[in-house]
Simulated assay, not measured.
Amino acid sequence: MNRTISASLLSLALLTGTASFAAMPASADKAAAAMNVDKASFVKVVTSSNAFEIESSKLAEQKAKDADVKEFAAAMIKDHTMAAEELKKAAKVGDETPVLSPKHAAMLETLKGASDQDFQPLYIEMQTAAHMEAVTLFATYAKGGDDAAVKAFATKTLPKLEMHKMHVTKLVAAH
């Protein structure tokens, strides 16, 4: 009896188009953004994130032991410095000194206090988390951002961040 009712309800849902899976988009690329992020919040987070990437990578150039990690750090400094400049232009913000969020400031202090032995694995771990967050944030803003110029910046920068994420994933596997 219950199977008959369940089958009938499923058939009715399919016929009327109310089944939730019937309305699913063909791919994630066509789906709407999971949430909307306003320009001010996006700029604040990205400014802090870029500053963290640059400062933590300067430390890594000095304290990391392996050449591949030092090369990654140099690329982070170059790419995130360029991204910071491009964001300033897109968002039409001045040259104020970037302010680290409490989270990024704490992460940077942790790196500064890390022993020589602990520094490199900690740096790689933090870079992994930072790039996972950045890819999500940029993808979200690229889909649902409220400022056309900043949205274009997010769209243009996203592939580079995805490349960083792949690169740091290789570092995780190698170390």
Rank of each mutant, 00 (worst) to 15 (best):
K58F: 14
K103N: 11
V93Y: 04
A139W: 13
A173G: 11
K30P: 13
A13L: 05
A64G: 08
D68A: 07
K89C: 10
E61N: 08
K63W: 00
Q117T: 15
S11Q: 09
E133P: 12
P159Y: 01
I77N: 14
A174L: 13
M1N: 09
A105R: 04
M82D: 15
P98W: 02
T136V: 09
V46D: 06
N50R: 10
K44W: 01
A22C: 08
V45Y: 12
K156F: 01
K156L: 12
D118T: 07
P159Q: 04
L158H: 05
L171G: 03
I54L: 10
A13Y: 04
D66P: 15
V46T: 04
H80T: 00
P159K: 06
A105S: 12
L137A: 09
E71Q: 10
F72A: 13
A90G: 11
T157S: 06
H104R: 02
A23Q: 09
L161H: 09
A26H: 13
A130S: 03
K63D: 06
V99P: 10
Q117N: 12
H104K: 08
T155S: 07
E133R: 11
G145C: 00
E96A: 13
D68K: 15
Y123N: 03
K112L: 04
G94F: 00
K65F: 04
V46S: 00
A130H: 05
A139V: 14
A67T: 11
E162K: 05
L15F: 06
E109F: 02
E86V: 09
K92D: 15
S27T: 15
G17E: 07
A149W: 07
A114G: 00
A105M: 06
P102C: 05
A90Y: 06
A51D: 14
Q120I: 10
L59F: 09
A7S: 10
A91G: 07
E125D: 06
K170L: 08
A154F: 06
A23P: 01
F153N: 00
T97R: 14
D147V: 02
D29L: 12
V46I: 03
G144P: 13
M132L: 15
M1A: 03
K89W: 03
T4N: 15
N36D: 14
K63E: 07
G94R: 00
A91H: 05
A64R: 00
D118M: 10
G94D: 02
N36S: 14
L122V: 09
H131W: 02
A34S: 14
P25S: 07
A60H: 04
T155K: 11
L14C: 14
L171S: 07
V150Q: 00
H167A: 15
A60C: 09
D147E: 05
T169P: 12
S56K: 08
H175V: 15
V135Y: 06
A67Y: 06
T18N: 14
V69R: 07
E55M: 03
E133K: 12
A22F: 03
F21A: 14
F52K: 03
A105W: 08
S115W: 02
K89E: 12
